[in-house]
Design a protein around this nucleic acid. Structure first.
Lengths: 175, 175
DNA sequence: GTCTATAGTCCGATAGAC
DNA sequence: GTCTATCGGACTATAGAC
């Protein structure tokens, strides 16, 4: 059921996420959808939960392959964030756009971001962690909205710089 | 008329931007609104145009007060972006959230971002300009969606760092 | 030019059959 | 449990009076 909802968001955008569309995609009826989720907002919350949970899992997977050392979490975070966006990323972005109306969901996403920042900044100087985090998130968000001004070559240079910075290396900035 | 549309977005969110709401706010009728803008999309485009134009003007104003020297545009851009968000900023964000459905509007915003990046990076090393730009934009976007993990004190430290970096000073990152 | 009235569509949610 | 049928409401847009 949630798969169907995610598919609808991917194929038609979050604005077209209607109970009818989900029902059609899931091979069920509107009544059937509303049996599983008492309201559309409940469906949205469940979808958000699923996406954040997947993102967390992807990060954990990268983290497991990252050697122990200072800034380990920050490095894993950057690597996980600059990879080619997958389906869940696109769903995340579409959901972010719909968040306006639901304070509870905004709160939930805020908690997620706060927890992540705490995780990646605990063993790195604050300024460095914050800068890398903001730039990474800026890149992710701008690409999500398809408004990034960077071409592929420039993006590669920036990604390299972010990874250096996460590694405690500021050489890429000297000049 | 556009003022009324902007007010509706501010008070009720972009999702509630309907012809009825705009008409009510403007003291007119739905038919009256549709006389000025042939369709709702036309109204959205006009609103987007207004917001970007205001943002451009705000930047130009800051730029005029910024002393001549390397990274002048980048410094003005940072200063203009980290200030307390005004009404237009909130409208921008709400509009960004609705962009999903309109490729033409996405293109327009993309052009705006590309032009801005070209302006702020022409006299600054690429890595530095891109990093400052992405971090600034990340901060702006996260605060717009109310998911920034930084408290007021941390935000002040980051803003200070961004301005230093825009100034060609990397000391804040050493450690 | 700006209004009223209304057509026509789509949505979320409910009620009740099976 | 899942369906069908339908309600009530909100939306965009059009037609025509003034």
């Amino acid at each position: 059921m949630l798969d169907a909802a995610a598919a609808v968001v991917l194929e038609q955008g979050a604005g077209k996420l209607t109970l009818d569309a989900v029902a059609l995609r899931a091979g069920a009826s509107k009544g059937g959808v509303l049996y599983h989720f008492p309201s559309k907002e409940a469906l949205l919350e469940a979808l958000l939960e699923r996406v954040t949970s997947h993102n967390r899992a992807a990060y954990e997977s990268v983290l497991a392959k990252t050697p122990v050392g200072p800034g380990r979490e920050l490095k894993a975070y950057v690597t996980n964030s600059v990879r080619e966006p997958d389906e869940d990323d696109h769903v995340s972005g579409a959901l972010l756009a719909v968040l306006n109306s639901s304070p509870a969901m905004i709160e939930s996403v805020g908690d997620y971001f706060r927890a992540r920042f705490a995780a990646i900044s605990h063993d790195v100087p604050f300024e460095r962690a914050a800068l890398v985090h903001l730039a990474t998130e800026g890149l992710w968000l701008m690409e999500l909205f398809q408004v990034s001004p960077l071409d592929a070559r420039q993006r590669a240079r920036v990604v390299k710089l972010l990874k250096q910075l996460a590694n405690g290396d500021s050489k890429g900035l000297r000049e």
